[in-house]
Design a protein around this nucleic acid. Structure first.
Lengths: 200, 200
DNA sequence: AAATATTTTAATCATTTGATTAAAAATAGA
DNA sequence: TCTATTTTTAATCAAATGATTAAAATATTT
């Protein structure tokens, strides 16, 4: 039997096109033909390499969920850093990831809504939100407030502008440059704001 | 020529089913047959009353955008209330709308991303974000910070939990009751937090 | 070079899906 | 009641879409 020697270049062309089309239009609105065309090759090749639209999507989705949680997971579980330090690390790191991947949050969130079983990382995500060092430190600082409230604020202030970016674009309110400028300003502002919330 | 006497009950059955299916699954993943079945009637009736999937969707979408901006528009443009008062009015009012319509933000945002031209309200939305009384009052209070930063925080802290609700549900982290509890707590917390941001 | 294995393509299939049509059923008007 | 109008349905259409197939092109092995 012959060993499979897959041309990495072609495979990568397909998955790169899949990343683009899936994240832009979502699973349901994506046509496998769109991906093939974007990759500059035949539709049948897509199934030759990845068997089905569903399988290809799962790959992209897992990757994207990894990106969304990957940056923060090691930070929030570090017992060497203080609460204050964690916030100062998370905010700029996360905003940079999102600047590189503006459509990421809306893509992941809407696909999880459409198909919760696609959310394979749910266990890890749950642990970050309930059993991380960050949660313990938040509870120490403010024992009377559900730590989830602060996590929602911290992540929300980072993510929300990217979720609403299509609105800004559609209303002609912000071009790409001024949006990025806005986010750059937030890098220091969010840290200040979250500290204010925690100290009062 | 005969006057059209449409049975309001049937028409309403269809649009109510459309509201449900469209907001749950999004435009692309929705099948007109799903809507017909949900409404308990024939697929052809749907086209008899509403001509096309697209037209029916536009109706629902306009309605939903109205819900999303309707509550805040009159508040932010009121020149009789102070900045402080506006915040105290917006937060609980908006959270109540969202509690009644948890899927609303994610639906509207992802559909605008998929199809920006569906966003018919874009002019009005743009004005709220740039020319409202609220914006002027924010600028008076903090001339050195783009008022959009505060609006993003105010709306984001209200909306973000609802956008991430599918994640909480999928990870089994929060049931509906504890989610609602979390939001109830936020009604006073967000007001406090936003005031902190504006006073520092 | 010949044979074998792998990659790529054009053509095609079977299903799904939005929409239409023609007829039946229900309702209103005379 | 009889007729015209409106509402509802079953059947069907045409296009789109995910996937397969068989053959051609390319690469690898001997």
């Amino acid at each position: 039997m012959a060993k499979k020697k897959i041309d990495a270049s072609t495979e990568e062309k397909i998955i790169e096109a899949a990343r683009k089309v899936f994240t832009e239009k979502g699973y349901a609105a994506t046509r496998t033909r769109d991906i093939a065309e974007e990759a500059g090759l035949n539709l049948a090749l897509l199934n030759y390499y990845f068997r089905s639209k569903e399988k290809l999507f799962s790959l992209v989705m897992a990757e994207k969920i990894g990106q969304l949680f990957g940056v923060i997971a090691p930070i929030v579980n570090d017992d060497k850093t203080s609460l204050q330090e964690k916030i100062e690390l998370i905010v700029p790191a996360y905003l940079n990831v999102l600047l590189q991947n503006p459509g990421l949050p809306l893509f992941v969130l809407s696909e999880i809504r459409n198909n919760p079983e696609h959310f394979s990382n749910r266990v890890q995500a749950g642990k970050i939100l309930t059993q991380s060092i960050l949660v313990k430190q938040l509870l120490e600082k403010q024992p009377n407030v559900n730590p989830l409230q602060f996590i929602l604020n911290l992540l929300g202030m980072c993510i929300f502008p990217f979720v609403t970016k299509p609105v800004f674009e559609a209303s002609g309110l912000l071009n790409n440059a001024s949006f990025n400028q806005l986010i750059e300003e937030r890098k220091t502002l969010i840290v200040k704001w979250v500290n204010l919330m925690l100290d009062n």
